[in-house]
Simulated assay, not measured.
Amino acid sequence: MLVWERPEPPDRPVPAPLSRERIVRAAVALADANGLEAVSLRKVASALGVGPMRLYGYIDTKEELLDLMVDAVHAEIRPSGDDWREVLRSLAETTRQAAHRHEWLADLIGGRPQLGPNTLAGGEAVLAAMAGVALDVVVPAVAAVHAYVIGAVRREITERRAERATGMDKRQWQAAFGPYLRRAFATGRYPALASVVHDGPHPDADETFRTGLDFLLDGIAARISG
């Protein structure tokens, strides 16, 4: 029986009240503060002021705990809108926002299928919005949006982590590596790259995400209307 269906043990208020929800909230708080490496059943138990063995009545393994954490964050991902395009855009943007609030999510999304109730509710909302569209379009369209968001979010979070690790923001990085790129472009071997760097647009992360999402949604719209 999966953790979503398994009943919790009877409440024991001494030495501390416990529930699956409290365990997950404590684990999410630890991960938000210090990353997934800060999450273990022992550390979560310590944060709750109980012994580690008490957690095993609620959760069998750390993998179950991670699944519960991901589903808890999916409560923040609520696709909404009046048509399929608005709903898919909402799915993408709220997923990105959740990942920026919980950076560790970028390490877990895109792995094995998530089956928790919050995740299923989000999937139901998306598919309901696409009712009437042929399933051979719906399935790859939703998968494409998920893939786009996962890739974009992981890139953004990786860049944020790199800034923290190196102490260099984007402007400082450009100042440090700009001379090397100018020397490389001066050789004449990279004319296309040089043109983009010198003359191309340089949107920020928000604009980059939304523009790429528009390209994807335009493609889906063309397939639906075709």
Rank of each mutant, 00 (worst) to 15 (best):
R154L: 00
R154W: 00
R154V: 00
R155M: 02
R155T: 02
E156T: 11
I157Y: 00
I157H: 00
I157A: 00
T158G: 05
T158P: 00
T158Q: 07
T158V: 04
T158F: 04
E159H: 06
E159K: 06
E159M: 05
E159L: 09
R160D: 06
R160P: 02
R160S: 06
R160Y: 02
R160A: 08
R161W: 01
R161Q: 03
R161D: 01
R161F: 01
A162Q: 09
A162K: 07
A162L: 13
A162S: 10
A162R: 12
A162C: 04
A162H: 08
A162D: 08
E163I: 14
E163T: 15
R164I: 04
R164T: 07
R164H: 08
A165C: 03
A165R: 12
A165Y: 04
A165G: 02
A165V: 04
T166C: 01
T166K: 00
T166L: 02
T166G: 01
G167K: 04
G167I: 04
M168V: 10
M168N: 12
M168L: 15
M168T: 11
D169T: 10
D169C: 08
D169K: 10
D169Y: 06
D169P: 06
D169A: 09
D169G: 12
D169S: 07
K170L: 14
K170R: 15
K170M: 10
R171N: 11
R171L: 13
R171M: 10
R171S: 14
R171F: 12
R171I: 13
Q172S: 12
Q172W: 07
Q172F: 05
W173M: 14
W173Y: 13
W173G: 09
Q174Y: 08
Q174A: 15
Q174V: 13
Q174K: 12
Q174E: 12
A175Y: 08
A175F: 07
A175C: 05
A175K: 14
A175G: 13
A176M: 10
A176T: 11
F177E: 13
F177H: 13
F177L: 14
G178H: 01
G178Y: 01
G178K: 00
P179H: 07
P179W: 08
P179R: 10
P179D: 07
P179L: 06
Y180G: 05
Y180P: 01
Y180N: 07
Y180C: 05
L181C: 04
L181F: 15
R182C: 07
R183E: 14
R183A: 15
R183T: 10
R183Q: 13
R183M: 09
A184W: 04
A184G: 03
A184P: 02
A184L: 15
A184I: 11
F185V: 03
F185D: 03
F185T: 03
A186F: 03
A186Q: 05
A186V: 02
T187F: 01
T187S: 11
G188E: 11
G188L: 11
R189Q: 08
R189H: 06
R189N: 07
R189G: 05
Y190K: 05
Y190E: 08
Y190W: 14
P191W: 02
P191K: 06
P191A: 06
P191E: 03
P191G: 05
A192F: 07
A192L: 11
A192M: 08
L193E: 14
L193A: 14
L193Q: 14
L193N: 11
A194H: 06
A194D: 03
A194T: 03
